[in-house]
Nucleic acid binder design. Sequence first.
RNA 1: GGCGGUGUAGCUCAGCUGGUCAGAGCAAGCGACUCAUAUUCGCUAGGUCCGGAGUUCAAAUCUCUGCACCGCCA
Length: 506
Amino acid sequence: MKPTFYLTTPIYYVNDVPHIGHAYTTVAADVLARYKRLMGYDVYFLTGSDEHGQKVEKAATTAGETPLELADRVVKRFQALWDRLGISRNDFIRTTQERHKRGVSQIFKDILDSGDIYLGEYEDWYCTPCETFWTETQLIDGRCPDCNRPVEKLKEESYFFRMSKYQEQLLAHIEANPDFIQPKSKRNEIISFVKEGLRDLSVSRTTFSWGIPVPGNDRHIIYVWFDALTNYITALGFPDKTGNYGRYWPVDVQLIGKDILRFHAVYWPTFLMAAGLPLPKKVFAHGWWTVEGQKMSKSLQNVVEPNMLIDKYGVDAVRYFLLREVPFGLDGDFSHSALINRINSDLANDVGNLLSRSTAMAVKYFDGVLHSPSSLTEIDIALKQRTEEMVTTVEKLMDELAFSKTLQAIWEVISAGNKYIDDTAPWTLAKDPANNERLATVMYCLLESQRIVHCLLSSFLPSTAQKALASLGSSDAVSKDVLAWGGLQAGTKIIKAEALFPRIEE
RNA sequence: GGCGGUGUAGCUCAGCUGGUCAGAGCAAGCGACUCAUAUUCGCUAGGUCCGGAGUUCAAAUCUCUGCACCGCCA
C-alpha cells in the first residue's frame, strides 16, 4: 500500500486571464506531484476554478451571457494552459459542479446546525454604485475609497461564522505545528494577526445571486471564500467520507500565493475546526513576480502571458526558470534577459551540452554501445558519490519545497560531470587502444551520472528528461529504484543527443 | 502608529548557535583543451560585510542607536 500525498493549488477565479502567477503556483505543484509519484507516493493533485461571485455575475451580464456560459468559456483557457505546461493534475474542480455545491451546502449546514453559524446583522458603510461595504477605517474622508462618492450606513441581514470562538484553538495549533504555515515569515504574520483577535466573519451575501444558496434560506448566497475554500474537500467527494476523502484528507500541502494566505491559514482551518474535520498539514505561501522590475498590472499592460512565453522559449525552459530563478516563498522578478540567461548558461551550456558531448563520445568511441565499467578509480568514485549524495540532498530539499535549491544541487552534479570529462580527457584515452577499458569505464560513469540527473529532472523538465533518457537508452523515470547507481546496463545503445536547448542569440 | 523583516563583490544572493566567514552563481578579463550547442575546464574580485557606539581575547555574525528599504496589521 503506497503512502498517499494530496496537494492542491488554489482554484483560480474565472474572471481573471491566466498569467505568470497562476502558472507559477501550478507548475510548482506539478513538480512536487511528479516528484512524489517518482518517490512512490499515491499522489492526488488537485487544481480547479472558482466560478461564483459578484464579479463573474457582472462580467457575464456585460458580455451578454449567463455566468455559467462565461465560466465555461474562460475555464477552457486555464485547462488549455495546464495541458500545454504539462500539468499532471489528477482532478480539476469547478465550483459550479454539483459535487461541489452539494459538499458546500452540507458543511455550511453542519456548522449552522452546531450553532457556529448564526443569523445576524451586518452593519457598515455601503457604496451603492460600487455595491461594496466598507469599514469605518477604510473610508477616505468619509467617502468610498474606490470612487470617492458618498457612502451610507446600511444594515444587512447576514449569516456569521463564529470565528472568534476558534482563536485560541487555532493559535495553539499553529504553535504546536511549526510546519503548518510556511515560510516562517508568513507564519509569524499570521500568528500576530490571530493574536490581535479574530472577529466573527460574515459568510453570506444578499446583494447578488450567482452562488450557492444558504441551506434553508434562498435569499442568502454563501460567501465566495467559504464556497471556494471548501473545494479542497468537495473534490474528494465530501460529505461522502468513504472514498477519496477518507483516502487523502487531510491534505499534505496546499500551495498558494501570499495574497490569499489569511484565507487559507485562518478562515479555512477554523471552518474545518467548526465542522470537526482535520486540518491541512501544510500551507505554503509563495511570493509574487514583478516584471522587468515593475509590479504586474493591467494598467501597465505588462502582464506576462504564459502562452506567449511557451511559444517563444518552450515549456521546459519556462518551468525551469520559474522554479530556479527565485527561492520558493520569496518575491522575484521576471525579465526576458534573465530567462534567456538561464536558458543559455544553465540549460544549453551546462546540462544540454554535457549530454551532447557525452553521447557524442559514446557514439564516436564505442559505436554507441555501452560497456561495463571495470574497477573505478578515485575520480570515478568521487563522481559516483556526488551523484548518490545528490539523490539524498534532493529528497530533503524537496520536502522543504526548496525547488531552487534542489535545482542547484542537481546542477552541482552536472558541473561535476563537465569537470569529470576535462579531468579524464576521453579524447586522449581514445588515441591508444590499450586504454579502451579505462575509456569504457569513464563513459559509463559519465553517462550513468547523467541518467540519474535526468531521472530527477523529469519532475521539473518532463519532456527534456524524456528525450535525454531516450538517448541514454533508458526508459522514463517511474520509480525510486531508477535513482540508484548502476541502472545503465552493458550493451545499451547510446544515441547522440540533439541539442536539448539551443542557445538563444540576442 | 503597532509588530516583523531586510541592508554582504557590477548583478542575484549564501553565510545556523560569534573564532579558515570574507563566499557561491551570473556578468567581465586572462589562460588551457577540443569530445561538445564558439560549448567546457582553470585562474582573476583589492567589496568601510548600511553608518555609529558597545560587549568580547575575537563580530558580517550578539546588544544599543541612526539611516534606507520591504511585509503584515491598524
